[in-house]
Simulated scan of single mutants.
Amino acid sequence: MTYQLYYWTGIQGRGEFVRLALEDAKAPYVDVAREEGDAVMTGWLDGDHDGALPYAPPFLKAGRLVIAQVANILHYLAPRHSLEPEGEAKQIYAHQLQLTITDLVAEAHDVHHPVGAGLYYEDQKAEAKRRADEFRESRIPKFLQYFEKVLERNGGKYALREFSYVDLSLFQVMSGLEYAFPKCMAKQKLPLLRDLAKRVAARPNLAAYLSSDRRLPHSEDGIFRHYAELDA
């Protein structure tokens, strides 16, 4: 089966967490909007198609299934592509960790859009500066030290002792935060997370993806944005 991934063109965004899983698993998929344009998603979001109604991209079409929300998509893909260990307890824990990553990603986005997603960054710079101060000083350390402890408690190599999609998502988080907050990240003591990110990036299928033109760069249109004044 060839999956159909729907996400906005031109940015990594939340869709990248799904792409990393598909690429690492070498699962056949089509990045639909990149081939047909963003307008291809309108009918799905307006409810013109049968099946589940997604609220927003990313969503994945797998046969007759329409699956939305990053953590939910990864929860579906993982057992089908050896992206999580066997056993209910480990699979529930993987989903729990991914949902925590979802919280982190939402907070990272809200740093540059603290007042409203429909406003430009330039319309809320003062509020963004205040939000960024708290994010750098409190939230980044709290989230990342939590995941550092998760790795430590599971042998130091992977979040679940065995490789899983959670490790792919942690790689993306580290990549995004290093781009958006390089000064802040340079101060963080995260030996296990940094080592994990290097090992994940070196996985053969993922390394091929990361060096290809399918891997878009981080930018100031995505979730992780670098504004020097927010990394003071």
Results as ranks from 00 to 15, higher is better:
residue 144 L to G: 01
residue 150 V to H: 04
residue 87 G to P: 12
residue 120 Y to I: 00
residue 5 L to E: 03
residue 167 D to N: 03
residue 213 D to W: 05
residue 129 K to P: 01
residue 108 A to W: 04
residue 172 Q to C: 04
residue 86 E to C: 11
residue 1 M to Q: 13
residue 115 V to Y: 05
residue 61 K to M: 04
residue 196 L to E: 00
residue 175 S to I: 05
residue 143 F to P: 04
residue 80 R to D: 02
residue 230 L to S: 04
residue 199 R to F: 00
residue 118 G to R: 13
residue 26 K to M: 02
residue 232 A to M: 10
residue 118 G to W: 09
residue 195 D to T: 09
residue 74 L to F: 01
residue 22 L to E: 03
residue 98 Q to L: 15
residue 70 V to G: 00
residue 78 A to G: 11
residue 76 Y to T: 06
residue 225 R to I: 14
residue 130 R to M: 08
residue 81 H to F: 14
residue 185 M to Q: 09
residue 44 W to Q: 02
residue 36 E to I: 03
residue 7 Y to S: 03
residue 153 R to K: 13
residue 141 P to R: 09
residue 63 G to R: 06
residue 15 G to T: 01
residue 99 L to F: 07
residue 53 L to E: 10
residue 15 G to L: 00
residue 72 N to A: 15
residue 151 L to T: 06
residue 169 S to H: 06
residue 49 H to L: 11
residue 131 R to A: 12
residue 30 V to L: 13
residue 207 A to D: 12
residue 56 A to Q: 15
residue 121 Y to F: 14
residue 158 Y to C: 05
residue 171 F to N: 02
residue 149 K to M: 08
residue 230 L to H: 09
residue 23 E to R: 05
residue 37 G to A: 07
residue 136 R to Y: 05
residue 138 S to Y: 12
residue 198 K to P: 03
residue 84 E to M: 10
residue 63 G to T: 03
residue 2 T to Q: 12
residue 78 A to N: 14
residue 130 R to S: 06
residue 141 P to G: 12
residue 123 D to C: 08
residue 59 F to L: 09
residue 34 R to L: 13
residue 82 S to P: 00
residue 5 L to N: 06
residue 116 G to N: 12
residue 1 M to T: 15
residue 10 G to Q: 07
residue 107 E to C: 09
residue 160 L to N: 00
residue 213 D to E: 11
residue 28 P to H: 03
residue 42 T to K: 14
residue 139 R to I: 13
residue 92 I to C: 06
residue 210 L to S: 04
residue 212 S to E: 08
residue 205 N to H: 15
residue 100 T to S: 11
residue 144 L to E: 02
residue 35 E to Q: 15
residue 231 D to Y: 10
residue 119 L to Q: 13
residue 11 I to H: 05
residue 29 Y to R: 01
residue 183 K to M: 10
residue 128 A to M: 06
residue 10 G to T: 04
residue 148 E to N: 11
residue 131 R to S: 08
residue 94 A to Y: 03
residue 117 A to G: 14
residue 231 D to I: 07
residue 92 I to P: 00
residue 197 A to F: 06
residue 88 E to D: 13
residue 210 L to H: 05
residue 33 A to P: 12
residue 108 A to N: 02
residue 80 R to N: 08
residue 183 K to W: 01
residue 170 L to E: 00
residue 165 Y to I: 14
residue 175 S to D: 15
residue 41 M to K: 06
residue 86 E to Y: 13
residue 232 A to Q: 14
residue 228 A to K: 14
residue 161 R to F: 08
residue 19 R to H: 07
residue 186 A to M: 11
residue 146 Y to A: 15
residue 74 L to P: 01
residue 173 V to G: 00
residue 38 D to L: 11
residue 66 V to T: 15
residue 90 K to C: 03
residue 168 L to I: 02
residue 62 A to M: 10
residue 45 L to G: 08
residue 210 L to K: 03
residue 25 A to R: 12
residue 144 L to Y: 07
residue 105 V to H: 02
residue 109 H to V: 08
residue 134 E to Y: 15
residue 17 F to P: 00
residue 191 P to H: 09
residue 58 P to E: 07
residue 117 A to E: 12
residue 186 A to V: 08
residue 2 T to D: 07
residue 170 L to R: 00
residue 21 A to H: 09
